[in-house]
Design a protein around this nucleic acid. Structure first.
Length: 502
DNA sequence: AGCACA
């Protein structure tokens, strides 16, 4: 009936309303500040801020129309414009007569976060990476993920958190410290706690990472919404940068029925693994990225490929000790190859060792390539200590095999590679040097024959062993980890990857 | 810098 559609969106003169529309506000503006702004002119009965795509608009509602008129009139003739945080704000009558506050449950902070992952490679972010990221702020109880809006790469996940904390990560240190400075002054954040994360030093992120504890986030949870977390430094190298947008979820709990590539319940270790995520062997689940994942274990199963040289118990012990104390090792033959179970005291250490060692060769030149998976065992039963199995937790064992045990081992070229003829006989036996050390790589002993493909090992600088624990000979010849500069990663957080900071 | 919400 009425031809309202032809009405222009903005008119030069709005009909008066007790609701005022404000624009050009700073995005940090709080409802308290809006009340302060309107108080001189009357009673502010309602406000709404962080409105609009840039979150820089707001509404003020007075109890009486005349109060709104008073405010508009004042600033219309005032030489001092209305300001919030030193920024000029523009006022006009709203085209509505009252503020409708439909705060949903999602706006009141809960213990469940709704996280949107944005970026070209959003769907390649695994649930484990997300778990890692959010574990920095507290114990993550549950995660469920789902895809939204096909075409625009978006994943959503919901995490249950016991507390509300937020990470600020930026590659630009000044932007984070600036943010924090503003937040510290914000009345919204009572008792903001800024703390450096323990891994900051390690990742060289320096001041660009901070955790903010957000207590009493009562006013605008929109603030949380606008938080953007860059966590590309956590992503595998082939992934582009991703951004997290975070809001509160309306949920107070999540229902996770299975552990799968899409959902996890970290509070329930007994939860069954989703049938869809189990392969024929019944032991692998699948990551968000579709990659196969095994359930982690403190026991690693190592199989050794291209075993040109004997891999002894002590060699394995040395290699795997780089990542933490090795409790037990059991070696056995399977399908004509050698396999070994290596037991660490905890899963974490095993994970780190597996990440660092998988696919690498014990000896340079492609010999004795390690393939690692997680064992289903959690505690090996070592019945007897011999050259194939050992329980290092028994003190006697140490006595019987004093350091450096590896050097006492007999080198055996199992297949005697003609291309790289090497035998222990090349080494002159002396009492000082252990003559029969399997030594396919050159350089550990003076006078040792040069051997092709050899590189000094980088097993020294062992973070888990005090300097000098390893005999100097072990600093050479055993193993290199090309992609890691020879050092195992710190277990808690992945390394800083400068190439991905943006 | 120009009117909100699921």
């Amino acid at each position: 009936m009425s031809s309202v559609s032809s009405q222009p969106q903005f008119r030069l003169t709005q009909p008066p309303s007790k609701v005022l529309h404000l624009r050009n506000l700073p995005w940090e503006c709080t409802e308290e500040e809006l009340v302060e702004l309107g108080k001189p002119f009357g009673k502010v009965v309602n406000t709404k801020c962080n409105v609009g795509p840039n979150r820089n608009q707001a509404f003020i509602e007075f109890s009486d129309l005349n109060q709104a008129i008073a405010m508009i009139s004042y600033y219309a003739s005032s030489s001092e414009p209305a300001q919030v945080r030193g920024k000029t704000v523009y006022l006009q009558y709203s085209n509505r007569q009252e503020i409708v506050n439909n705060k949903t449950t999602a706006d009141v902070g809960g213990n469940v976060l709704l996280v949107t992952i944005e970026g070209a490679d959003a769907r390649l972010v695994s649930i484990d990476v997300l778990h890692l990221v959010f574990s920095a702020f507290g114990f993550v109880h549950k995660i469920t993920t789902f895809e939204k809006t096909a075409g625009f790469q978006v994943c959503m996940l919901k995490l249950i958190y016991p507390t509300y904390r937020c990470l600020l990560v930026s590659t630009q240190a000044h932007s984070v410290s600036d943010l924090c400075r503003r937040w510290c002054n914000s009345p919204m954040l009572k008792l903001p706690l800024l703390q450096k994360m323990p891994w900051m030093e390690e990742t060289s992120l320096g001041d660009s990472c901070l955790i903010v504890d957000m207590f009493e986030l009562s006013v605008t949870d929109d603030l949380v919404t606008s938080l953007i977390l860059h966590f590309s430094y956590l992503l595998p190298e082939h992934l582009g940068p991703c951004t997290l947008r975070i809001t509160y979820s309306a949920h107070t709990d999540l229902s996770v029925k299975f552990q799968s590539h899409r959902s996890r319940d970290y509070t329930n270790a007994n939860l069954p693994v989703a049938p869809s995520a189990i392969d024929a062997n019944g032991m692998f689940s699948v990551g968000l990225d579709g990659k196969k994942l095994e359930p982690e274990s403190n026991v690693l199963l190592a199989s050794i490929e291209n075993m040109q040289y004997a891999v002894t118990l002590d060699v394995l012990h040395m290699v795997f000790s780089s990542f933490g104390p090795v409790q037990k090792i059991a070696m056995f033959d399977k399908n004509g190859g050698l396999q070994a179970l290596i037991q660490y005291p905890d899963v974490q250490t095993a994970v780190v060792a597996k990440e660092a060692l998988e696919g690498h060769c014990i000896y340079d030149g492609g010999f004795c390539k390690l393939h690692l998976s997680y064992s289903r065992h959690s505690d090996l039963s070592i019945k007897v200590n011999n050259d194939r199995s050992r329980d290092y937790t028994i003190p006697n064992t140490v006595m019987m095999n004093p350091q450096p045990s590896i050097l006492g081992q007999q080198p055996v070229a199992t297949h005697g590679p003609p291309a790289h003829p090497y035998t222990g006989a090349h080494f002159a036996p002396t009492t000082e040097h252990h003559p029969m050390m399997p030594q396919p790589s050159a350089g550990w002993a003076t006078g040792g024959p040069p051997v092709p493909h050899s590189m000094p090992a980088q097993m020294n600088n062992n973070p888990y062993l005090p300097p000098g624990t390893m005999p100097p000979q072990m600093g050479h010849g055993m193993m290199q980890m090309p992609s890691h500069g020879g050092l195992p990663h710190a277990p808690a957080m992945p390394p800083y990857r400068p190439g991905h900071m943006q």
